[in-house]
Design a protein around this nucleic acid. Structure first.
Lengths: 141, 141
DNA sequence: TATTGTTATACTCTATAACTATA
DNA sequence: TATAGTTATAGAGTATAACAATA
């Protein structure tokens, strides 16, 4: 192993770089990073409780609340009481929310393409595939 | 592009996972993460000013100070006034510091090997190489 | 006047505990 | 009693400004 950087350091620097590079895209949609993370998590389907949503976004439930209020006030998502258990509020994307997150992601895909522009296509495909698998594994803990 | 996760999210999750996985290694040496980052940065040679060191570690000079004091008190590094410009203090690893950081890195290499254990060697080599290049580029900004 | 290292202060972010309403 | 959502509080982490010493 004649590697130069620690993996952890490399991941940290790239996280920082991506956050900075994506900031203009998010700001164009008047979204904070965590707003985008929440909307993004809801794309696959509604969350049946806020606690569950907090868990998938890796944020505790108390910090999630101001985010949800902001996004609901803008009409990007809806919180509706669950008739079966009225303690729960199911959180779902609205049509407007779906549009915003899709448009956001398009911008972010461009930023990602920029980052990978100098990597040869074959290596790029492998890199992205391995990264995705590792991220899944890391997330599962 | 039929990718599952945003690159930024993947990097962020992996950063978090690596920090958590490396924590026991660092604690065994009674080091905080930033202690290790500083010692690590000094391995290539002394820093001619604290400001320069702060810059390479991506931490501002004021937050660096308590770290340096802690490490100096433990005899892992030395701050000596620069005779040419007495405002500066050059920061250098001691022998003990060099040993600690080397032992730490060995442990971290094991953690990294764990992370990559399920990736086939060919893909692993490409992944690590690309990651390293991207990290360099991200750092250069 | 500008810069290095340092200290002090204010601010943001995060974690924890406590409260309510349902079950 | 236990859990979902909410609110309030305390702590850690961060950024900014001010200071003394040197150039």
């Amino acid at each position: 192993m004649e590697r130069r950087h620690d993996l952890g350091a490399a991941f940290a620097w790239l996280t920082r770089a991506m956050v900075a590079a994506e900031e203009p895209v998010l700001r164009a949609h008047e979204l904070e990073m965590w707003d985008y993370a929440v909307l993004s998590a809801l794309e696959d389907g509604p969350a049946s409780t806020q606690a569950e949503l907090a868990d998938t976004v890796r944020r505790d439930k108390t910090r999630l609340i101001p985010i949800l209020e902001r996004l609901e006030a803008r009409g990007l998502l809806r919180r509706t009481p669950d008739p079966a258990d009225r303690r729960n509020r199911v959180v779902a994307l609205t049509g407007a929310g779906r549009e915003v997150v899709a448009s956001c992601r398009a911008g972010i895909r461009e930023v990602e393409a920029d980052l990978l522009a100098d990597v040869e296509p074959g290596e790029r495909a492998i890199f992205v595939a391995v990264l995705d698998r590792l991220a899944d594994a890391a997330r599962a803990r």
